[in-house]
Simulated assay, not measured.
Amino acid sequence: MKRHSELLQVLRQAVARHFRGTGHERRDIVTAIPWLTLIRIPTPTEAGRGLLQPSMCLLVQGAKQTLVGPELVQYGPGDYLLAAVTMPVSGQVTAATLARPYLGVRVDFEAREIAAFILEMQIAPPPPAQLPATYVEAAGAGLLDVVARLLALLDKPRDIPVLSRLLKQELFYHLLMAPGGAALHIAVRGSGKEQSIGEAIQWIRQHFDQPLRIETLAREVRMSASVLHRRFKAMTVMSPLQYQKQVRLLEARKLLMAGGVEAATVAFKVGYESPSQFSREYRRMFGASPKQDAEQLRQSHFAP
């Protein structure tokens, strides 16, 4: 326990040091290791929605809550949120001050990287289980130590090309060996059915603006409609139609924030046939009409 606390303190100091001399509006730093991002948020935030790409987000100071499907998960220092597949989520920083801001470390990865590592190292598959591919886990000391060495590596640019790859593989090992690692293993290296769900997710993201018929999608990924629905919900905590709806609305929000386009035009662009239905579902998801939400987002984005 002492080692765990010491490592968290090392991580807090390392992340804070990289933000030293930057204004409070600077919220993230993409480091010299392109898949390693440092995060600092000085105040609690409103709930924000987005597509979480495959990644591990380690919280080292502050607190956060994330809504994945119907489940609200709260977590704090030493916990990480892992997404093995691209997932629509809603997240909110709940504890942060100027003196003790929210601090985090995000490691991005691709599922095929972990699948290749599992094959190369011949890591045994976990017992069969149906687990969601996005979850919160308490980090062990071994995982914290790897992240601390990754941050220390930023001070040795010459070593980054070689050692960062080795440290990333070591991180994969700790993620796979953690209690929740079965979900990661199954998501990236599971049976043909799990791989078909990954294909279904990719298909929906590429065709989100088109009508979704479960029977058609099932044929695309070589599954029965009933098995597709059951397996999809087990992995993503939502049905294919719910997943498509969230992807559509998140894409609509990006288009509206860019400006210069009417809500009705955006509705048709992301696949809605009825602008009024689009507005109702948009308000239900984001708490404001498309026009109001876009104006609020632009004001907050460009505020000094």
Score class of each variant (00 low, 15 high):
G104E: 05
P101M: 09
A99Q: 14
P77W: 02
Y75R: 01
L103R: 05
D79V: 00
V85H: 04
P101A: 04
A83P: 09
P77H: 02
T94C: 03
D79Y: 12
A99M: 08
G76D: 07
G78D: 02
G91Y: 15
V89F: 14
Y75N: 04
V85P: 01
G76I: 02
A96T: 14
T86N: 01
A83F: 11
T97G: 06
A99K: 13
L103M: 13
L82Y: 09
G78E: 00
L103Y: 10
A95G: 06
G91L: 08
V85E: 03
Y102A: 00
Y75H: 11
A95L: 15
L98K: 12
L98N: 12
A84G: 09
Q92K: 13
G104V: 06
L98M: 09
T97Y: 09
G76K: 04
L81N: 08
Q92E: 10
P77N: 06
V89M: 06
M87Q: 13
D79G: 00
S90N: 07
T94M: 02
G91H: 10
A84P: 05
P77G: 00
G104N: 15
T94L: 11
L98I: 13
V93M: 07
G76F: 02
G78M: 03
Y102D: 09
P77K: 00
V85Y: 06
P88E: 01
T97I: 07
G78F: 00
Q92F: 13
L82T: 01
L98R: 11
P101Q: 06
G78K: 01
Y102I: 06
D79S: 06
S90W: 12
